[in-house]
Simulated assay, not measured.
Amino acid sequence: MNTLELKNILKFKIDRINDKKFLEALTILIESKTDPIMSLSNEQKNKLEESRNEYLLGNFENNNVVNEEMDKWLKE
Rank of each mutant, 00 (worst) to 15 (best):
N67Y: 03
E49A: 09
K45V: 01
N42M: 13
E24D: 11
S51K: 08
W73H: 13
N64M: 15
L29S: 07
I17K: 02
E68S: 08
K21F: 13
L56M: 12
E50S: 09
I37M: 05
K13H: 15
L40T: 01
S39T: 14
F60R: 09
F22E: 09
E68T: 08
D35C: 10
G58T: 04
E61F: 04
W73C: 03
L29V: 11
Y55D: 00
E50N: 09
E54G: 05
D19T: 00
E49I: 14
M1C: 12
Q44A: 04
E24R: 14
M38Y: 14
L48V: 06
N62F: 07
M1R: 11
N2K: 10
T3S: 14
F12E: 15
E31H: 09
L56P: 06
E76M: 14
N2S: 12
I14E: 04
W73Y: 15
E5F: 09
N42F: 15
I30M: 01
N8I: 04
N42C: 08
N8G: 09
L23Q: 06
K33P: 06
K7Y: 08
L6E: 15
R52C: 08
L56G: 08
D19H: 06
L57P: 05
I17L: 01
K13S: 15
K11M: 10
N2H: 12
E49Q: 11
K47I: 13
N62V: 10
T3F: 13
E61P: 04
N42I: 01
L10C: 05
R16P: 09
G58M: 02
L48E: 01
P36A: 08
R16K: 12
E54Y: 03
T27M: 10
N18I: 04
K13R: 14
F60H: 09
L40R: 11
F60E: 11
D19P: 02
D71F: 05
D15K: 06
K33C: 11
K47A: 09
E24W: 01
E61N: 10
N2Q: 13
T34Y: 03
D15F: 10
S39K: 13
K45A: 05
E31Y: 03
L6M: 12
K11A: 03
E24F: 02
R16W: 07
D71S: 07
L40C: 04
E69C: 02
D19Y: 08
V65N: 14
D35M: 13
K21I: 10
K7F: 09
M70Q: 02
L26Y: 00
L10K: 02
V66M: 06
V66S: 03
E54V: 01
P36W: 01
L29E: 11
P36Q: 12
V65H: 13
F12S: 15
E5L: 09
D71T: 07
S51I: 02
V66Y: 00
R16I: 13
Y55K: 01
W73E: 06
E24I: 00
K75E: 11
V66T: 15
Q44S: 03
I28A: 11
N53F: 13
K20Y: 03
D35K: 15
T34M: 01
L10I: 11
L10M: 06
F22G: 08
V66W: 00
M70C: 10
E68F: 07
L56H: 07
L57H: 13
V66F: 01
L48R: 00
W73D: 04
E61D: 14
Y55L: 04
R52K: 14
E68V: 07
I9A: 09
I37V: 12
L10S: 03
D35V: 10
L4P: 06
